[in-house]
């Protein structure tokens, strides 16, 4: 389980590095581990793909997201009641 725990910590460190600069110590640990671990290299490659897909996904504007005429009428009635 030691190696498993190490990989979790290392990939977490990688995500942390996406937000801020790592300390020299963390950087060295990350690089040393990545030199020999195919699993964590796989995580990083796929994490980058997910970054790309998530950006694309959230960049999409759903032009079909409109209120129907009926919904707008109900909304107006509801708001007029609130006034």
């Amino acid at each position: 389980m030691g190696a498993v725990r190490k990989c979790e910590q290392i990939t977490l460190l990688y995500e942390k590095a996406n937000f801020l600069a790592l300390s020299d110590e963390d950087n060295a640990e990350l690089k040393m581990h990545m030199d020999k671990c195919t699993k964590c290299n796989g995580y990083i490659e796929d994490s980058k793909k997910l970054d790309l897909w998530l950006k694309e996904r959230f960049a999409e504007v759903d032009a079909s997201a409109n209120f129907t005429a009926e919904e707008k009428q109900k909304l107006k009635e509801s708001l007029n009641t609130t006034l």
Binding site: A63, A65, N66, F67, K72, L75, L79, N80
Partner: peptide, 29 residues
Amino acid sequence: IDVNALVDDHSDYLLSFAMSKLKDLDLAK
């Protein structure tokens, strides 16, 4: 307040904004 104008002019824009973040139509509405 002109409620009719408020709904007609802004509700669809607000819904698109909410959908871009939430991706859940019922919750966005």
